[in-house]
Design a binder for these strands. Structure first.
Lengths: 149, 149
DNA sequence: CCAAGTAGCTTGCAAAATGCAAGTGAAAAT
DNA sequence: ATTTTCACTTGCATTTTGCAAGCTACTTGG
């Protein structure tokens, strides 16, 4: 399988760069699942409530990897499994996610008020939690369910 | 023409809400043009570097209006023109835009370092500028080109 | 006041992206 | 050894996008 080439950008604007990498209906949800639920395998992503199709999921994971937002490694205990992890670039998307959650929380009827409240009350602390959790090469998500998404 | 109905959400997650409204290749660029360049008419949006097609632009403006992110009024001096403006909900997207610009600025080769530097050096001040500029019902953009996008 | 723009769309059609169901092949579990 | 599980791929129908060409109401220049 040939490595996917990065297509030429429509413009050099930084917002356009973000939009070309993340501007679709699934990429940020995948990153949300990694960041907040600690999802790490294909199957775990599939289980998410919105119901992504397998071919689209495979495609998005491939692209996120090409962009350097996630990386993969083999599960040492199960040869079938691939472990998907956020790279530092991916972890660094936490503030973007946060602002999008807060915006929707302010202007839309949504669920998961606990997460929104947590983010509102101490954004810095919340971001710090995410970074800490992902600081180790293999993040443990034992304390992950402080809140659900 | 029937008013577009809001389709049912795939989930009640706040991030999903944001993604369903903004997760495509054009919506945030339109908001960028309004926020940073002061674009206010169909023609001005068309002039933006990335080159959106007229049918897509019309569709996105319609949706952004349905979502309450923008509103329109007639130009009092030119009956052909419609003036598009950000609503408070739209103005409130400034932090999302900012974080996306900063993220790309940190991790991608992009242009417009002055904007990125401005945002980095004083995010609060930058957001305040945007809010002030849009506080009046008809925002003047005389001081708009402190930086280009 | 009339012809020639101009603004903001819509329409038609081809190409690309998405969604769904049904595989596939390798590894693990029973 | 057979069945299950995992991470995909494939085929095909539907939807969205992109491009070019209208179209209609309004304005402008002569």
């Amino acid at each position: 399988m040939a490595k996917k080439r990065l297509p030429k950008r429509r413009s050099a604007c930084p917002l356009n760069a973000s939009v070309e990498m993340l501007g679709d209906r699934w990429s940020l949800l995948i990153i949300r699942d990694m960041m907040l639920l600690g999802s790490r395998t294909f199957k775990e992503f599939l289980g998410s409530y919105e119901g992504i199709a397998t071919n689209i999921l495979a495609d998005r994971l491939r692209k996120l990897k090409v962009y350097g937002i996630i990386r993969t490694e083999q599960d040492p205990f199960d040869g079938r499994k691939l472990i998907y992890q956020l790279t530092p670039k991916g972890i660094d998307l936490a503030p973007v996610l946060t602002e999008m959650v807060l915006w929707a929380g302010r202007h839309e009827k949504t669920e998961n008020r606990p997460l929104i409240r947590l983010m509102q009350e101490d954004k810095q602390k919340f971001l710090e939690q995410i970074r800490q959790r992902w600081a180790q090469p293999n993040p443990t998500m034992e304390s992950k369910r402080t809140t659900t998404i």
